[in-house]
Design a protein around this nucleic acid. Sequence first.
DNA 1: CACCCAAACTTTTTT
DNA 2: AGTTTGGGTG
Length: 688
Amino acid sequence: MLDTVALNKSQLESVSFGAPTANEKTHPPLLIIAGAGTGKTNTLAHKTAHLIMSGASPEKILLMTFARRASAELASRANRIVEQTLRKENKSYKPVKIEWMGTFHSIAARLLREYAGAIGLESDFSVMDKSDSADMMDVLRHELGYSKTHRRFPKKKTCLDIYSRCVNGQSALQDVLDKHFPYCSDWADELTALFKRYTEEKLEQVCLDYDDLLLYCFHMSQVKEIANEIRERFDYIMVDEYQDTNVLQAGILFGFFPDGQGLTVVGDDAQSIYGFRSANVDNILGFPDQFTPKAKVISLEQNYRSHQKILDLANTLLSESSEGYKVALYSDKKSGPLPKLVNIEDDRKQAEYIVESVLASREAGVDLKQQAVLFRSSYHSDRLELELTRRNIPYVKHGGLKFLEAAHVKDVLCMLRWADNPKHKISAYRVLKLLPGIGPKTAEKIFDYLTLHHFDFAALDSVSIGGEAKAAVISLAKLLHEIHHNRIDWNSQLTKLAEIYKPLLEESYDDHFVRYGDIEQLTEISQQYKSRERFLTELTLDPPQSSGDLAGSPHIDDDFLILSTIHSAKGQEYKNVFLLNVADGNFPNEYACGDKRAIEEERRLLNVALTRAKNELHLMQPLKYWVPEQQSWGDKHVYGGKSRFLTDQVMKCIEVIHYPRLTPNTEESLRSTKAIADIKKMVLGQWG
DNA sequence: CACCCAAACTTTTTT
DNA sequence: AGTTTGGGTG
């Protein structure tokens, strides 16, 4: 009943490994090393489908993926395979629902809510997103008096990054500082105090940040009774992108499933690119040895995505690493265009070249959607975006600024969140400060008053503050009160909040018209969620990836070019790929150059970028490129040296071209030659 | 105490 | 370029 035609030998082995039979029900731990484009998702989908058809209960399957998009896709593919197979056998089919799937963070959030009672946690905790966390850091930073020191204290974002490293890597503060933030080393004591306050403050406000979700869940997994119960709930556990898990995530897995029964992890050590989030490649490399007997290992090496010339390039790049990666990819598609290294003058020419090539390919029948421009940092596409807009070429950008991070969207969201959780100080301050006449002090006063009155919004009627602001506070509090107690239907809660927000928006922004559109869109999105709580949690855990991603995307059948950071392009594939700014300082990034491990991560990042391409691959090598740093008056261009990854061996896999084509001094026409007219004089002429 | 303006400083990738 | 801090004013 297994569809063997669609799978190769290793894939088939992965799929059938440990599937339940009449007399055998064990599934020992399994590691699948799946190189780029080797049909990983397909294999996982088949495995899921196969398990279900062999009698496994869907509700006892746990699927953990890296991004929500990936998990949704996995589930729908598995569904399709089950359906197809059953149809073929003329059996009836009803859709399979895999209830337990999602990112580590979202699974953790769900488990924590369920077991909150058992671990002494309020089950109605809020989840803070990054900027909430940063805001809280900032407040405490001031409170502890660190903003007035003679030497500059790290900024809120830096503080948060340091904290996050400590938690996710379970490392000592001093180690983290020495290794990743040497310029902050002197502040160890202050940071320790700050992080302690931060942790207390979160407890007080019943908030968990991203890291807490993993941290709490990790501690929960160490509690025998709970771990046992959770192990009973799941027969099969599949974890995707295992190379990007950190110590905490691996700890959670081993806490819940110590013997690895039913556990399958999938990943590729050559695609580990989340070291900055404390991902640890050792997790995947050391996985087999965690168990006795050791876990079974299957490698997928046949690539179905790219032709051999692209793979040769990727393989050569990886072979020059000191890391010794597990797989070398090969493809049945032997021929295809040689990857190009395109020399251009600067990012302007870069944009020009890309626009021309992209349009030419479209003429030749390749949809824009099948072409992607990838880059290291999201601002790298700025110049290109200008050019695309100018030429009316539609595009969607993944990575970079998110819809939810826009100030006005955040404002409304905070109103809703405060209504949801009256103790949510960060939201409260943000919302209160929006009202005219209310600054930090008054906001504090109001919040203290609310605290004193057991967080009952109705009590704010009698708060004593200055005349003008008072009316605004009272009418806001009234609405929040009604929302908190769900006296207003969930469907119209955001609409009501938007009504209150609208005048404030008009007051502070010239482009309020556009911004209000975003608010309406937010309201629209919220309708898809069953309850306020789920809306808030899921939105912070799985924010829409791009503005085109929103509200079921009305332009779904339009054709558009893909712009994406490499990190966000993970798991994707495109017919043609353009990679921006391949130059030393960017590939590898200059901040990574100090550390050998970091450089290797840059190499893997480049590998990920290369292996997205099915057919054409253009590496753009600008002579100089634009960087936003440095003093604002100077020339913002930086001369990038040749990337150290483009060694002689690597260059043998690449064709070098120049754009515009090198032609010996054709007519320069009249540009930049000597003046034959005096424009200044002509302009002055109007005034006699 | 809120608000406005000028000066200083910054440095990627994401759940 | 955009955010954060500091100082001055009402």
